[in-house]
Design a protein around this nucleic acid. Structure first.
Lengths: 240, 240
DNA sequence: TAGATTGTTAATCGATTAACAATC
DNA sequence: TAGATTGTTAATCGATTAACAATC
């Protein structure tokens, strides 16, 4: 119903339904999160030498219900064999491809402060096909240096060149709050299409640039909410 | 009209509903997340000198729809005045209390590696009532030292004493994957009831101990999924 | 009073779960 | 064949949105 959505038939175009289901198979963040969990379970199974697994196995390994495992997998194709299960190696390869993990990804981290530098040297950011190739900062005292793990600190003026030359897919924002929007605009202008943002606050982005925000303080507040709730309940029980 | 709804007057029983709604008001993680967003919007409003705000204002500031703002707030009480709006200062205080932010919270971080040390010195973990009072590690070379920001590194043997003496509410896990379960068990045994976990993998916990996990790599994978999807769509368009 | 804005109810939407026919 | 396990359909659940009466 969006005005402007092209529904006009292009002469010569074959009668496909590409327009009617333009983004139908878009998986939710919750679903892709589960795919990552399945992938890890499959990696463990493979390491254990197992050839075949089942939705029940994977459910046990991930905490997801078996029916949902099957539903998630069926969403992307028919990967299993009825009565038998799923072939571990093959399924692992397919899921990795779906998640874009069939190739390596270079990462730049904008902001060579505490958090940025730690992330540059962090295992979780530099294994499984991910590699931090540079920290970006505009402090002349930092530029030209390296993190303890050896990641070079470069000027923001090198950003676009780096993205072109080294093929950077992902940027991480770990700058002060007041610089976040500018940093995002710069990495987007340099051609980066996916950004993991650790800075608090709303960011405006443009279509085609995927931003995912992790607000560490909000996670702490989610926990203090549970604590406060437990205390209130305990307190009112005691008073009653 | 519901069958089974107790309408029968029990002789002598006072007419309370305490039993019928024992944990009814448990808010989802999504809802508490929005509460944190509202709190920040209110802090900005207050800093701007505004006395009164509305669900429309807060919606604009947070990206949440106005109807949902009202629903969230109404869930915790009647905070607004019809036809007028919400009193900024008062609402801010109430939400802070709901989130347990009407008191300070001491934090210990288990694991004085890259990530743990960075978090100890990270602003987001040491403002707004949160304070990291110690890093815990079992490397003798680290124990007795301090982070760059001055947070002392202590032995795990000091953990229980620290929790008792200083009143630690929150623990952060930033240890290697193979130590995570043990670290969780130790902080729980020491009396900590809320844990923010940065380690990949499932953890077993016991009732009353709240664990929230942040898996940084899964966030990267969520982004590469979007990238892969965009490439596939672009590719199939080009091929077509 | 007229206009504004809440609190609440009903409608909608999307995600999860349960059940089971298909099929190895 | 009998038993196992998938892929899919229908039922359930929970969260969001829309609409509006209450009320300042």
């Amino acid at each position: 119903m969006q005005p402007g959505r092209r529904s006009r038939a292009v002469p010569g175009a074959s009668p496909r339904r590409t327009v009617s289901l333009p983004s139908s198979d878009e998986a939710s963040d919750a679903a892709t999160h589960r795919l990552s969990l399945y992938l890890r379970a499959l990696a463990r199974s493979e390491a254990d030498g197992r050839r075949v697994t089942s939705s029940d196995d994977m459910a046990r390994a991930t905490g997801v219900k078996p029916a949902l495992v099957r539903k998630d997998l069926a969403h992307f194709g028919q990967f299993g064999i009825r009565g038998v299960g799923y072939e571990v190696r093959g399924l692992r390869t397919r899921i990795a491809a779906i998640l874009g993990l069939d190739r390596d990804h270079n990462v730049v981290i904008v902001g060579a402060g505490n958090l940025g530098t730690a992330l540059a040297d962090y295992r979780g950011f530099n294994t499984g096909g991910f590699r931090t190739i540079a920290l970006i900062d505009n402090d002349p005292k930092k530029i030209g240096g390296r993190s303890r793990g050896g990641v070079p600190v470069r000027s923001v003026r090198d950003l676009a060149g780096l993205v072109q030359k080294s093929g950077v897919d992902l940027a991480v924002l770990a700058v002060p709050a007041e610089s976040a929007q500018r940093a995002l605009d710069q990495v987007a202008a340099a051609g980066v299409r996916a950004v993991l943002n650790f800075v608090q606050g709303r960011l405006k982005t443009r279509p085609g640039v995927h931003v995912r925000s992790v607000d560490l303080k909000i996670h702490l507040e989610g926990l203090t909410y549970r604590l406060a709730r437990a205390w209130r309940r305990a307190g009112s029980r005691a008073v009653r």
